[in-house]
Each structure stands twice: as C-alpha cells, then as structure tokens.
C-alpha cells in the first residue's frame, strides 16, 4: 500500500467520541484487509485461470477499501501512524475483524461460500453508510460523517459486482453435481456459526449508531437474512438450526486461532524490514 496524496476534505467537526470513531473504522478496515489477504492466498493456484484472476481482483478491491478505512482511522487517531502501520504492526488482539473473514480458504467452494455470506452483509452495510438505503424510510440517512459515506459509496459499486458473482457461484455449486452440493452444504454448516456476528449490535456499533455514524445496525439483519435465504434456497442448501453462535472478533478478545497465523504471514516482511519503503 502506498501513501495517499492529500486527503480531499477537512473533516467537519462531529460530536463523536474519537475512540468510538476510530474503533468503528477499524471494524470496517480490518474486515476488508483480512478477507482481502485471505483471497490473495489463492493467487496462482485457483482451480482455473479465470477464477484465479477473479479472486485476485476481488482481493485488490478489498485491500483498496482497507487502505481508505485504515488511512482515515490513522488520521483520526492522530498518533502518526499510517494505513500500512495499522495493517502490518498491530497484533491479533488489536484487530477488530469478524471471525468469518479469518476462516481459512478451504476448497474453492468454501472460499465462495465465505465470500457470499460476507458480501451480502458488506453490501447492506455499505448501502446503509452511503445512503441509508435498506432501512425503513423515515430512519434513512447516510453516515453523519461524510468521509465515511464517500468511502462507502465508492466501495458499494465494487461490492455490488462481487456479491452478484458470489451469489451466482453459490447457486451453481449448491445446485450443481452431487459432490459440489455435498461440499457446499458442509461448508455452509461449518461457516454458519460465524454469521450472527456480522450483523450483531456490538458496543462499538451501538455507540456509532448513537453518534449517527451508521443507521440502526439491527436493520442489517433482516436485509441479510432475506437475501441469504433467497440464494440458499435457489442453491438447494439449508442452513443448520443452531442455538449458539460464535463471536469475539469485534472487540478482539476471542479471535480464532487462524488470525494469528494469517498475520504472521502477512506481516513478516514489513516487520523484518520496518524501515523499508517501496
């Protein structure tokens, strides 16, 4: 990631606890960064060339989003850090990504199922931040922070395309051969416990909603459920009936063991050469 030139707007004064503001941006940036890195692990070894290119392009978009979110978080934090510094020099407990994006790639179907579950949430979230769309009309408003609304509007265009693709592939693989169906059902069962955390009202989101950085985050759940149910049905897949879901990524207290391994790979080069520039 390279340093961005001058940021475009002076931030208008917002009545927001700076810590909530930064933590909220870290949630957005860390999800994009970690999933972007996961997808980049496919580079050069996806099942077919077209999919290899598609996964790498999706990874690029997400890392681009991470650069914008983390760059803004670093600016607000005012501690002299940059997006790169936040990406490469924090330890697992300082990450605010959800557990779903940390899950290993598995086979191609598992990667696509993870992508679909995340994309559907991501699209609803970005729309909410950019325009308020998806909420009941009288409560629709874009993020009170125009910088957040702008980044979300940019990212939304790309994620719309990504979600169309991952939903299409989930249907083709789920409603495909006996073997592809079996694998997609198994991966849905394995990933489902990590989905509740996506739309959870964690304390940072609740505080961000109070500050009008985001609309009612609970509004994301029905939008996500509606789209996911529709696509899974077309894919002939059935979500498991669970009473307990996993969480712990949003406050960094209970990340999965996978995050540490991912960071070890992602961060080793910059940490070995902390003064290098390129």
């Amino acid at each position: 990631m390279s340093a961005a030139p001058t940021a475009q707007d002076a931030t208008a004064p917002l009545d927001i606890d700076p810590q909530v503001h930064v933590e909220f941006l870290l949630q957005l940036g860390d999800d994009a960064l970690i999933l972007g890195h996961r997808l980049s692990e496919w580079c050069g070894k996806a099942p077919v060339l077209e999919e290899d290119i598609a996964l790498a392009n999706t990874a690029l978009d997400l890392i681009g989003h991470a650069q914008m979110w983390l760059g803004y978080a670093a600016e607000l934090e005012g501690a002299g850090r940059s997006a790169d510094r936040l990406a490469f020099f924090r330890d697992p407990y300082d990450f605010r990504c959800c557990l779903l994006v940390q899950q290993p790639n598995g086979d191609f179907g598992q990667t696509i199922m993870r992508q679909f579950l995340f994309d559907t949430y991501h699209l609803a979230l970005l729309r909410m931040l950019a325009t308020g769309k998806g909420l009941v009309a009288h409560r629709s408003f874009p993020s009170a922070d125009p910088r957040i609304a702008e980044i979300a509007a940019k990212a939304e265009k790309e994620v719309t395309y990504q979600q169309e693709r991952s939903a299409d592939l989930v249907i083709r693989l789920g409603d495909g051969s006996e073997e592809s169906h079996r694998r997609m059902q198994a991966t849905l069962d394995a990933l489902w416990p990590f989905t509740r955390e996506l739309t959870d009202r964690d304390p940072v989101r609740v505080a961000a909603a109070e500050a009008r950085l985001i609309g009612d985050p609970g509004g994301l759940t029905p939008i996500w459920e509606h789209e996911v149910t529709k696509v899974l049905k077309a894919a002939t897949l059935t979500p498991p009936d669970l009473s307990h879901f996993q969480s712990g990524g949003r406050d960094g207290r209970r990340h999965t063991e996978h995050l540490g391994h991912l960071l070890a790979v992602m961060q080793s080069l910059p940490r070995s050469h902390p003064d290098a520039t390129w």
Binding site: A4, P5, T6, A7, Q8, M68, E150, I151, A153, K154, K157
Partner: peptide, 11 residues
C-alpha cells in the same frame, strides 16, 4: 499538488 478525490465515485 495531486488531490485524490473519491466522491462522486468514478463511473
């Protein structure tokens, strides 16, 4: 001086 502008997003 270069200014990177993201809004409105490129179309």
């Amino acid at each position: 001086r270069l200014k990177r502008q993201i809004a409105p997003p490129w179309t």
